[in-house]
Amino acid sequence: MTSDSRLEKILEEGHFAVTSECGPPRGVGPEVIQKKGEILKGVVDSVNVTDNQTSVVRMSSWSAGVLLKQMGINPVYQMVTRDRNRIAIQSDILGAASLGINTILCLSGDHQKFGDHEAAANVYDLDSIHLIQTVKLMRDDKKFLGGDELKGEPRMFIGAAANPFADPFEFRVVRLAKKINAGAQFIQTQCIFNIERFKKWMEMVRDRGLHEKAHILGGVTPLKSIGMAKYIKNMVPGMDVPDELIERIKGVEKEKRAEEGIKICIETIQQVREIEGVHGVHIMAIEWEEMVPRIADEAGLLPRPAAQ
């Protein structure tokens, strides 16, 4: 074990892992995050805490993570390289680890153009692969990027994201390999709507043997409505929502469309689970966390095993 992460234990013990996520509030109130935590507790193995997602300012990811930790939930500390240089990054990693955070997801982050501070400078001192290398260097070599030794290493289970639906498609697996070579131990993918493309990507992953070097968790998102499906398809870069899926939701009565979205999500989980090399699912129910217990239950993912 490289960490005390519950997610690492679950995966290393060979269980099919289930993770979810919650976005911190745009204010100081801890109750928002606690409410989401209550919903997800016991239903998933770990909860990702997003880091100013879509570049909209929110409570810091590590502090919301600590709030979850206090509830007995294993938070996955998402960290983007957009807002911090290597000095702040290493400092935050030390701080988070000292507060008991043991799982980190290394990301480059959405461009600030999408957020509420378009005029902000972006940092990108490091990219996501450098961030993975940095955490690993601190944990395994007990060193800072600058070369000095650190006293008391952050024992972090290191994760990264992969988007099988962005372009150039053939390069996506190369990029995954780079992340794994850099030190990523688990991978959470972008939301899977196009299962065929995901299968093809996993085939390429297996061809390189990457599924044996890191745990891959397929990302899923329940679609609430046609509007949401179309928004994701057309407005969110690097997302692939096939027309058949939209047609399927369109095919049912308006009141039953959210239900159909849940059904599709459950089916996707079941299909993803069948794919060789997939070790878990990451359920991203965007502002719909209350549906996660039901999805996990109906997809046959409950009860969650107790990690040894």
Partner: peptide
């Protein structure tokens, strides 16, 4: 690259275009 990434395109690269514009 709008994020000056050093190791390949981010997940926002779609059909050859940048997520920013």
């Amino acid at each position: 690259c709008a994020k000056r990434l050093m190791n390949g395109p981010c997940g926002g690269s779609t059909q050859g275009k940048c997520e920013v514009d």
